[in-house]
Structure formats: C-alpha cells, structure tokens
C-alpha cells in the first residue's frame, strides 16, 4: 500500500540513531507543532499536552529504531502516537473522575481561532466543519476520543452499519473538498 520511504524521514531517523543532536532539534522543530497540537486537541489540557509532547520526542530519541520509515511517514506515525497517548490520558482521567463520556460535539474547539494556523490548516478545519453534523460527530468521536465504530454506534445510538458508513463518508467528503481546493498527496503544512 505504501510507496518508498520518504528520504527525509530516513535521513532524520539515521541522524537520531547516530545520536546526532541536530537531528533531534530538527525533529522537534518540524513536528513539535503537530504533536503538541494533536495532544492538546485530544486532552484539552495544556499541561498534559506538554507532557505528552515531551514523552513522544524523548521516546523517539531514546529508541529511534522504533520508527520504521517503510511502514508509515514520520508525520503520520508521530500523530498516531500523540493521539493514542492523548486518548489514554483522557481515559485515565475519566476513570479517575468517573465522568461519563460526554456526547458533546467537539467541533467548536476544532474551530478555535489560532492566528498561527496556515491556510491549509484552515481549509482542513473548514472541511470538517462543513460536514453534516452526524458525520462530524462520528469522525470526532472515533478520531479524537479513540472510539471504535461500534462504540460510536452505541454512543450515538445508531446502527453499527450507519456508524461505519458515516466514518467512511466523512473522510471521503473531507478528501473530496480538500482535493478540489488543490490538496495533493504530499502537502506542506508549514
């Protein structure tokens, strides 16, 4: 499914394996915002997001061989780890506080004004905001809360088939809108 590894990812990983500090700094400067942003978005807690960001980068620095450029691009890999850690954090917190998972629509946070947001990011946010509400709810629960489509179905009280279809359709709609706006496979968000 994947093509050849990204040469930049391979170069960065080699640098990290060799213990080169400039590679560490480049890694943080390139991906710090996506990792921190994802952790912040999932946890909505600045302290937790900073802790998660630190853990993600320190872990990769300690064991760069855990990242395999043949499996996924570095950006996707870091995003996945930041997201998982964020989801772990909210689950631990919810367990502590016995808070039932709220069925709120997290969209408002997603659309929070961020003066630093690039046009590309704004376009993505708009594509999510433009989704029909049921689609948006499903994708946000699955993506940022880590629910399986079955849990999404239960949470929204809809059939499982509907939940699956909404996730697929939501991604397709976002993809179609962004491609129409000129997004291509390799996109520079910086």
């Amino acid at each position: 499914m994947l093509g050849l590894p990204d040469p930049d990812d391979v170069r960065l990983r080699d640098g990290l394996i060799a213990g080169a500090e400039p590679a560490l700094a480049e890694l943080y400067d390139t991906y710090g915002p996506v990792v921190f942003g994802m952790a912040l978005h999932v946890t909505r807690d600045r302290g937790a997001a900073e802790d998660i960001t630190q853990d993600v980068f320190v872990d990769l620095w300690r064991r760069p061989e855990h990242f395999d450029p043949h499996r996924s691009p570095l950006r996707s890999w870091l995003l996945l780890i930041a997201r998982r850690r964020g989801i772990d954090w909210i689950r631990r917190r919810d367990a502590r506080e016995s808070v039932r998972l709220a069925t709120m629509d997290p969209a408002p946070t997603l659309l929070e004004d961020d003066v630093l947001a690039s046009t590309a990011r704004k376009q993505v946010r708009k594509a999510i905001a433009d989704l029909p509400a049921p689609h948006r709810q499903a994708i946000l629960l699955a993506y940022y809360r880590g629910l399986t489509y079955r849990e999404v179905a239960k949470e929204l009280d809809i059939p499982e088939g509907t939940a699956k279809w909404r996730l697929r359709n939501a991604l397709r709609r976002i993809g179609a809108q962004l491609r129409a706006e000129g997004f291509e496979d390799r996109l520079n968000f910086e």
């Binding site: 710090g32 915002p33 996506v34 921190f36 942003g37 994802m38 912040l40 978005h41 997001a49 900073e50 960001t53 691009p73 950006r75 996707s76 995003l79 996945l80 997201r83 997603l110 961020d114 630093l116 947001a117 590309a120 990011r121 993505v124 946010r125 999510i128 994708i139 993506y143 991604l171 397709r172 976002i174 993809g175 962004l178 997004f183 496979d185 996109l187 968000f189």
Partner: peptide, 14 residues
C-alpha cells in the same frame, strides 16, 4: 491520507 490531513490540521505552536 485524508486522516493525516485531519491530524495535521490541529497543529499548534507550543
């Protein structure tokens, strides 16, 4: 790929 775009959209400068 779309999921990656979605993930990147939340980027924030720490």
């Amino acid at each position: 790929r779309v999921a990656e775009w979605v993930g990147t959209a939340t980027a924030r400068t720490p």
